[in-house]
Amino acid sequence: MFKYSKFLQIPINIRHKNPRLANVIATQYGGPNGELGASLRYLSQRYTMPDDVTKGLLTDIGVEELGHLEMVGTLVRQLSADAPADEWAKMGSWEYYADNGASVYPQNSQGSPFNAASIAVTGDPLTNLYEDLAAEQKARAVYDNILRLSDDADVNEVIKFLRQREVVHFQRFGEALDKLQSKLKTKRVMGTGMKNNC
């Protein structure tokens, strides 16, 4: 059962409108390396994980990613809210505005709607964790790209925070992988991961 808390992980207060930047940041809402995919990936992988550490970690990180989804949505909203149409024409994406107005829509920066093909859920615990490690690196790399594109200090403070969380998640997934691997090794079923009751 999920419960909603009416606050963000850190406060977000963007002073300058920039619909163009909103279009770019929206990719972390619904793009291939974004927060929606991240939460779905972890929360879906949980069901077949073999031990309490991985079940718990995927639950807790998956939930945090849902919070990050809301934070990215907040960035997109604050960057684009109340921007006049001519500002969208000059600074934003006409195409995004035509379909969505100043809404927050799960798509990548080029307009493709969210696609679950960007996440993998295999049923193999080790494969899942390698997928998760890669996903955290990819999300971190996209935040790095955004930092190079953006010169808005308010935005960058939030992006740097989200980027750092990817690094922390990568670290935790690495530790979970190490633990699971040594467990599987002692049971001599390394690599299969299935039906070992560990």
């Binding site: 949980r46 069901y47 309490d52 079940k55 718990g56």
Partner: peptide, 9 residues
């Protein structure tokens, strides 16, 4: 003791 089984599913 957060990690203790069973999980909701």
């Amino acid at each position: 003791n957060w990690l203790k089984s069973p999980w909701p599913w």
